[in-house]
Structures are given as C-alpha cells and as structure tokens.
C-alpha cells in the first residue's frame, strides 16, 4: 500500500482514537485543557513513531529469525518502556523545559494501549518498515488531532450545560462517539 495513503488513512479515516477507541484513558482524562492535551498529543506521536519502528525491527530482525514470535507481547512492552525511559533521559539532559512540560505524561504513555496497539496492528497487517513508520506517525498525529478536537469541544461544554447525570466522562464519551461518526464519514476515500 502507498505510504501517502497509509498516512492519510491513519490520520483521518482509521483514526486510532476515534475508530479503534484506543488510548481512551488519557483521551478522556487529559482533554480538559487544550495546552496539556497538545503536550500529550506530541508525546504520543513521538513515542508511537519511535516504538513502532523499533518493534518492527526487533520482530522482523530478531524474533522471527529466531522463531520466538510468540514472545512478541512481552518484548513489545519491554521495548516501549525502555524507549520511553531513554526519551526521558534525553529530554532531561537536552531540553529541560520540554521535560518539565511533559511531566508525568511521558511515563504514563508506557501503559497507553494505543502505543502497543499500533505496534501490533503493524505486525498483523504485515507492513514493511517504511509503511510501519508512516502508519505509526499518522496514528500519532491522528490521536493528537482527536484529543485537540475533543479538548476544544469540552471547552465549549462549559457554556452548554449538559444534563448533570452525564457527568464529565460520560458527556466526553458521547462527544467522542459523535466525532467518530464524522471521521468515519471519510471512510469511502481511503481505509486501511
């Protein structure tokens, strides 16, 4: 499949947050404030791209040749945790401002299912290395867009006065559902 197509589809029509509903936990809990949400979005994009590429390399160059493919879940999770740790060390050294801006979000990403999900999707769909990079980067950007969009909507919620019983998380889930409909509307153009 064409790289541009993968990139477009993963950002819009097969958005990781809105069509697969992965990474919902930060999506609901951190989207109250757009600034914080975009910090999380950037962090997710970076980590997703780096980990999916690394996991592809490990899977195809190490696990499959050794016949140890069944260890993929364990290995993928270890890789993700390690890379997040390494990114933290680098940021702390070279960009303290960014390090403090990310704060707790970077370590939290370690347990974000969207990150693991992208590595697993890339494996299931038997992507090549560059396809994986495009897919992971696109998914990151897609998640970023989705959390920004819902952040903007939630800001407007302050003036909307939804029924009390929906609560903060409930109304956000409903909003996400409506947004998902809009995103899926583009499926005809391209899908994965």
């Amino acid at each position: 499949m064409n790289l541009a197509l993968i990139l477009f589809a993963s950002i819009i029509t097969s958005n990781i947050a809105l069509t697969y509903f992965l990474g919902m936990c930060p999506f609901v809990s951190i989207s109250k404030n757009i600034r914080v949400a975009s910090g999380m979005g950037i962090a997710v994009t970076i980590v997703m791209t780096v980990t999916a590429s690394a996991n592809w390399l490990i899977l195809n160059k190490v696990l499959i040749p050794m016949g140890l493919q069944y260890l993929q879940f364990l290995v993928f999770i270890i890789t993700i945790a390690t890379l997040v740790q390494i990114i933290e060390i680098f940021l702390d050294r070279f960009s303290p401002a960014l390090y403090h801006a990310f704060g707790i979000f970077l370590p939290l990403i370690t347990v974000n299912c969207a990150i693991l999900g992208v590595s697993l999707f890339a494996m299931l769909r038997v992507y090549t290395f560059w396809q994986t990079v495009a897919f992971a980067f696109g998914s990151g950007i897609g998640w970023f867009l989705a959390i920004i969009a819902i952040g903007g909507l939630r800001k407007k919620l302050m003036f909307a006065d939804p029924p009390e019983n929906f609560g903060a998380a409930g109304i956000t889930a409903i909003l996400a559902g409506i947004m998902a409909l809009a995103f899926i509307g583009f499926t005809g153009i391209a899908s994965l």
């Binding site: 050794m66 290995v75 270890i78 390690t82 740790q85 390494i86 060390i89």
Partner: peptide, 20 residues
C-alpha cells in the same frame, strides 16, 4: 530458548539504560 532470550533482552536493556 525463550527464557534465555527474555533474560538476555532484559539484561541488554538494563545495561543500555544505565549506560545512556
């Protein structure tokens, strides 16, 4: 084989982080 692999992998990762 998988035990050795996982242990080796974890050891490698540990050293990598310490070194970095």
């Amino acid at each position: 084989k998988s035990l050795i692999f996982i242990n080796g992998f974890a050891l490698f990762i540990g050293f990598l982080i310490l070194f970095l």
